[in-house]
Structure formats: structure tokens, C-alpha cells
């Protein structure tokens, strides 16, 4: 409210000049980071775009001749004998699986991460750093090793099945490894901290007197959650979902190790083109497709999130 009062006052010319000066100084300060981002992000991206319009080389790499074939192959496949064109079922299946598993991963990460973040945010301020520290412990170990560790847990002779059998809950091992379930478990495990941290950041700023005010005004626990807490921590929810959904969609290591060969996701398909498939342009075109899907999904998500915020 105090800002509003200040904002309504007409600033003088001197003040505007001073403010411009500040902005210029800040711009100068972030120039190195901007340059790095520009070179390291846009440069390779540009190369990928260019490669997607070239022909694949004999053994790998590209031949510098223009071709739309790679883009055509993203969605369609040409029969090698009679040249009939059909939809590329395999690609669409993989795309659908990627989207489905990523959405599921995001949802599960949210359902697990929300109570966790709430728990940490409601601890006494002196204990919170300890809990956050615990959340970040998995980052200390290499992703590949952690994924293999999960494999150890869920494989047929692994800890989980042995335990369930010892308890007499199941007679024969449940096949979890090399299924979509395994991939989902792995991805939820890997990306959960990325959900917890932004949620926690939003909840830490939450004024818990508002929660008390909700209870005071006859809202039950569930209503307080829906009408007070969730709308107020929405920026954290948006950030957390993006941070989990986007890398899930391009996940590579987890589906490869836990999904075996048959449960490919987009990341694996792309890797395949650059590796054994020796079709760099198709890999590049698939990468760009993924990028566009993510960009559209994000734009739509952020817009609808901010719109419903304005309507509330």
C-alpha cells in the first residue's frame, strides 16, 4: 500500500534520469551472464536447427545438402520397398508415452512434494535449513548411480520384492523393472527435489496468520488448503511443475536404465538417432519438435495460470 502511494506520485525528471542510470548499471552487471547464455544456448540451438534441414552422412554427421526429409520423418515413415507413406507409429507412441509419463511424474511429484514442502515450511525457522539440506542430499550422487540404486531396489531379486515375499504379501516377485512404472518411480525420485524447493520457497513466504484467518472464518482444513494456501503458493506450484515436467519430457538416463530398451522416451529416441541410428538430421528435427512442444505447453500453462489468478 505504501508502494502504491509512492507510485501514484509523478516522478521528477531528475528522478527518472537517476532511475535510468540505475537500470543501465544493472544491465552492465548482467552482461557477462547474458553473453554466456547467448553463446552457449542460442549457438548450439542454431546448429541443431540447421542440421535438421540437412541430409544424414554415411556413418554419422551430416552432408551439407538441403533436405526436408528429417522433418518429414518425424511424423511419417516411407516404406522402404514400395515408398508408401504412413504415420510414424513408433515416434507417436514414444511421444505419447513421454508426455503421459512426464505428466504423471509431475502430478506424483506434486502430491508428494506439497506435503513435504508444507512440513518444512511449518518447522521452527532454526530447523528448516537442516530439512532443506536433507532434501538436497540426493544431488551429491551422480544421477546414473542413483538410478542403478533404484534398479537394485525394484528388480525381481531386489530389496522390495525380497521384503514383500518375506512378509508373505506376495508369492512371486512383481515385475516392476523395465516397465513404465519403473520409469515413473525413477523420474519422481530424481525430480522430486525440483518440486519441493520452489514449493518451499513459496510456502516460506506464506503468512500463516492467513491460514488462521481461514480457520477462524469457518473454513475446514480442506477448504483452507483449497481457498487460501494453494492460491497463495501458486507461483511455487507453477515453478515446481515446470521444473519437473520439462526435464521429465526430455529424460534420458532414467528411462534408459529403468525402462530397458523397450520403454523409450523422447530423450532416448533422440539419442538413438545421434548414436546407432546415424541419422543426425532426424535427431535434430526430433529435438526441435520436443522444444516446440515444451514451449507451447509452457506458454499455454503460464497464461492459463495467470488468467485464473486474475479471475479469482
Amino acid at each position: 500500500m505504501r508502494n502504491g502511494v509512492l507510485g501514484n506520485r509523478q516522478p521528477s525528471g531528475l528522478e527518472i534520469e537517476a532511475r535510468r542510470q540505475t537500470v543501465r548499471n544493472y544491465l552492465l552487471l548482467c552482461t557477462p551472464a547474458l553473453l554466456l547464455l547467448l553463446l552457449a544456448a542460442s549457438g548450439p540451438l542454431l546448429i541443431v536447427v540447421v542440421y535438421s534441414f540437412l541430409e544424414p552422412g554415411e556413418y554419422s554427421g551430416v552432408v551439407w545438402r538441403f533436405s526436408g526429409e528429417a522433418w518429414f520423418n518425424v511424423l511419417f515413415s516411407r516404406d522402404i520397398f514400395d515408398d508408401t507413406v504412413s504415420l510414424a507409429d513408433a515416434h507417436l507412441t514414444i511421444l505419447w508415452r513421454s508426455v503421459r509419463l512426464s505428466l504423471l511424474t509431475t502430478l506424483l511429484a506434486f502430491l508428494l512434494g506439497f506435503p513435504t514442502a508444507y512440513f518444512i515450511a511449518t518447522r521452527p525457522a532454526s530447523q528448516r535449513p537442516m530439512w532443506l539440506f536433507l532434501i538436497t542430499i540426493p544431488f551429491w550422487t551422480n544421477l546414473l548411480i542413483r538410478t542403478f540404486a533404484i534398479m537394485e531396489v525394484i528388480r525381481n531379486e531386489g530389496i522390495l520384492n525380497t521384503l514383500l515375499q518375506a512378509l508373505g504379501l506376495i508369492d512371486s516377485p512383481i515385475q516392476i523393472l523395465y516397465t513404465d512404472t519403473a520409469v515413473t518411480i525413477g523420474m519422481v525420485y530424481v525430480y522430486l527435489p525440483l518440486m519441493v524447493l520452489p514449493l518451499y520457497a513459496a510456502m516460506e513466504r506464506l503468512d500463516f496468520r492467513l491460514v488462521e484467518a481461514g480457520y477462524d472464518l469457518y473454513a475446514s482444513r480442506w477448504q483452507v488448503l483449497r481457498k487460501v494456501i494453494i492460491p497463495l503458493v501458486k507461483p511455487g506450484i507453477v515453478a515446481g511443475t515446470i521444473l519437473v515436467f520439462v526435464p521429465s519430457l526430455g529424460a534420458y538416463v532414467t528411462p534408459r536404465v529403468l525402462g530397458g530398451g523397450k520403454n523409450m522416451m523422447l530423450g532416448n529416441l533422440i539419442e538413438l538417432q545421434f548414436g546407432q541410428g546415424r541419422n543426425w538430421p532426424l535427431g535434430a528435427a526430433l529435438s526441435m519438435t520436443l522444444l516446440v512442444i515444451v514451449a507451447i505447453a509452457l506458454a499455454y500453462y503460464v497464461r492459463s495460470a495467470s488468467k485464473s489468478d486474475a479471475n479469482d
Partner: peptide
């Protein structure tokens, strides 16, 4: 409440 605790949203 002392600081009103109005719902900002």
C-alpha cells in the same frame, strides 16, 4: 487480527 490478515488474492 493484529495485522488484519486479509486474503491478498
Amino acid at each position: 487480527f493484529q495485522n488484519y490478515a486479509l486474503f491478498p488474492h
